[in-house]
Design a binder for these strands. Structure first.
Length: 260
DNA sequence: AATTCTCACAACCGCAATTCT
DNA sequence: AAGAATTGCGGTTGTGAGAAT
C-alpha cells in the first residue's frame, strides 16, 4: 500500500521487488485489486447489486470483469464468487443446470422481477413511517405472455404464512402468475412480460450498459442505484441475501420448471 | 468435546493480450 | 519484427470459520 501510495498502481513486478515482498507482481496485483484497494465496497451483496449481476450476466455471461465495472467497489472475483456460491447453488436446488434455458428463464421472468418487487417494497418501507403497505410494482405489461402457477398450493407448504422471508414473500395461489400472485396478502402485479425483457435484450442494452440504468425494471418512478444501496439497512443484512430462495420459492419454482 | 461438513472468500494457475526492449 | 516481460481475465483450488453430527 505504501509503494502504491508513492508510485501509483501498475509495475507490479517492480512493486514486488522494491517493497521487499516475497511475492510475484501478479500476486501483489491480485491482493491489491481484491482486498487492499481503498475504494472497495465491503459487506454483503445488496438486492440492487444482485439484480445488476443477474441482469448483466444474462447479457454478457461470465464476463466478470466487465460486470464488475458496473458495480462500483465490487471486484470481478467477488462477483464470480457470488455467482458460484449463491446462484449456482440455487440452480442445483432446482435440479437444473445454471446455463440451461429453463434456469435462465426462471431468473429472468421470476427472480429478477421478484428482486425488483422487493427493492420497491423496501423503498416503500423507508418512505412511510407506519406499517408500510407495499406498493404495486409497475412492470411493463404490453404482452399477454404469462407463466402459469395454477399448480401452486400454499396450503401444502410447511412454511406458509411464517416464511423465513423477512419481506413477507410466501407465495399464495393465483390462477395466473402473470397477472398476479400475492405474498402474505401483499398485492403484487406480476404481469411479467417476456416482450419487455426481450426488448431490453434487443434494444436497450447499450444504454443500460453505459448508464447502468435500471429504470426499466422500476417502472416510471425509477430508482437511483447508488442511492438505493443505502435506502434500507435491512438490504445490507445477511438475511436478505438469500430471501429470494426460501423453501417455498424453491418448491414453487420447481413447479414452474416442471410445467415448462 | 471431537470430528465432519458446508460455505464464503481469497488466492493460485494457465492462458491470452498487451507492452516493452 | 520478434522475443521477453508484464498485465488482465476467467476457471479452479485452498483455507478458515461456523454449523451439524
Amino acid at each position: 500500500m505504501n509503494y502504491i501510495a508513492n508510485n501509483g498502481e501498475g509495475r507490479w513486478n517492480s512493486l514486488a521487488r522494491c517493497a521487499g515482498l516475497n511475492r510475484t507482481g501478479k500476486s501483489c496485483r491480485l491482493r491489491w485489486l481484491n482486498y487492499l484497494r481503498p475504494d472497495l465496497r465491503r459487506g454483503n451483496i445488496t438486492l440492487q447489486e444482485q439484480l445488476m449481476i443477474l441482469e448483466l450476466h444474462s447479457r454478457w455471461g461470465n464476463r466478470w470483469s466487465k460486470i464488475a465495472q458496473h458495480l462500483p467497489g465490487r471486484t470481478d472475483n467477488e462477483i464470480k464468487n457470488y455467482w458460484r456460491t449463491r446462484v449456482q447453488k440455487h440452480a442445483k436446488q432446482l435440479k437444473c443446470d445454471v446455463n440451461s434455458k429453463q434456469f435462465k428463464d426462471t431468473m429472468r421472468y421470476l427472480w429478477m422481477p421478484r428482486l425488483v418487487e422487493r427493492i420497491q417494497a423496501a423503498s416503500a418501507t423507508t418512505t412511510t413511517t407506519a406499517a408500510a403497505t407495499p406498493r404495486l410494482v409497475s412492470l411493463p405489461c404490453e404482452s399477454a405472455h404469462t407463466i402459469s402457477s395454477s399448480t401452486y398450493t400454499p396450503e401444502n407448504s410447511s412454511t406458509t404464512g411464517t416464511s423465513s422471508d423477512s419481506f413477507g414473500t410466501s407465495t399464495q395461489a393465483s390462477s395466473d402468475l402473470g397477472v398476479e400472485y400475492n405474498y402474505n396478502n401483499i398485492p403484487v402485479n406480476h404481469n411479467l412480460n417476456l416482450d419487455h425483457y426481450q426488448a431490453n435484450q434487443g434494444g436497450n442494452y447499450q444504454d443500460f450498459a453505459v448508464s447502468t440504468d435500471l429504470s426499466g425494471y422500476y417502472g416510471t418512478q425509477g430508482l437511483d442505484f447508488q442511492e438505493q444501496n443505502n435506502v434500507n439497512p435491512c438490504l445490507n443484512s445477511e438475511d436478505t441475501s438469500d430471501i429470494l430462495w426460501n423453501m417455498e420459492d424453491i418448491w414453487f419454482l420447481q413447479q414452474q420448471l416442471n410445467s415448462m
